[in-house]
Design a protein around this nucleic acid. Structure first.
Lengths: 187, 187
DNA sequence: AGGTTATGTCAACGGCTGTAGACATAAAAA
DNA sequence: TTTTTATGTCTACAGCCGTTGACATAACCT
């Protein structure tokens, strides 16, 4: 009907936020630009105009979620426990986007249009930075194995809805995961 | 042009084979019925007619790939090594469809139309049968963790193309995986 | 006030999708 | 041969998708 107020940057951010939420719960091709536009209360054409293409929107969503594995001053010793806690979502409140970003990447892992972006993002922003935390031989291989465990757990929980893994706090799942990660990282 | 020879059962099987191959490499929504029809050299309408709906075709693909974790007479002891070898595709030649079936399931894990099917298939045909092989408390949880490792590794290798994991034979990856699985299964 | 720019709407295109019904032809039966 | 049945083809329909260009109106500037 009537054009909204000013402040394009604000609506652009809202779009990005909506896109982030959508891409977290659906794969690349199952997120429609019209869905995002509806969330913001805006016409489809506008999101196309602000971001050029859907592919670029996805790219910006990923770029806007820089993960900070490194910012936390975590030694290689505490890393396994930290990663296990993160993947089990111990702290919903804290604004840790790391896991969300990882889940977005995994969601669209087998989407032709997004796969390239997703692969390089995973390699450059996850594997390599974490590998730099360790100074052992075969660091990347160890980190790759560790994140196989982590992403596997996430996939089982989030995508496959495997029951025994959803009741996370009990059964000492976190300890088990920590132990596995420790073994994966420091042989 | 001219209608093909007879034998509907044969062309139906060819469709299923093509669908299996396609669903192995693309997610549910990225596999078009027209692609399958083209593979078989047949019109789209026919695949729609033999299988009713795309969803049912996917269902039949999964049904036609009964996995046989149990058929092999494997004790709980050899299980970790067996699973590690399977996920690393040691035997391409042998007609083991288990891994393919698992990969198909993972491919379409976040496809709304297929997710229900995929979840129950994973639970009923993977988690539960393997859990029955073990007679320990929390068998399902252990198996769930073990398959977190396995599917994680598969995802990293197949979907994300993580380099260090692709050179599988070297670096003792198989041994590492076996060790992790053993720890996951028998606490 | 008048003019200009930013912000957003509207309409539509071309393409692809799964699905359905009417039609054609080869094989089999009478 | 004639009839019937199985096997496939052809046409087309809605529906969704991302993308584009032309238009409208609010906000700002002078």
């Amino acid at each position: 009907m009537s054009p909204r107020a000013k402040c394009a940057a604000s609506t652009r951010d809202t779009m990005l936020a909506s896109a982030r939420r959508r891409f977290l719960e659906e794969s690349y091709e199952n997120v429609g630009l019209r869905d995002i536009a509806r969330d913001v209360g805006v016409d489809v054409a506008l999101v196309g105009r602000y971001f050029g293409s859907k592919e670029n929107l996805f790219h910006e969503v990923l770029r806007g979620m820089r993960c900070d594995w490194l910012d936390s001053d975590i030694g290689a010793e505490e890393l396994p426990a930290f990663l296990a806690a993160m993947v089990l979502r111990k702290e919903e409140a804290e604004d840790r986007e790391d896991l969300d970003r990882l889940l977005i990447i995994l969601r669209s892992a087998s989407s032709p249009k997004a796969s390239e972006l997703v692969r390089t993002a995973f390699r450059e922003d996850v594997i390599e930075p974490v590998a730099r935390l360790l100074d052992v031989p075969d660091a990347e291989l160890r980190v790759a194995v560790a994140f196989s465990i982590l992403t596997g757990t996430s996939v089982m929980r989030t995508f496959m809805g495997v029951e025994p893994l959803l009741a996370c706090c009990e059964h000492g799942l976190e300890q088990k995961l920590t132990r596995l990660l420790r073994e994966a990282l420091s042989e």
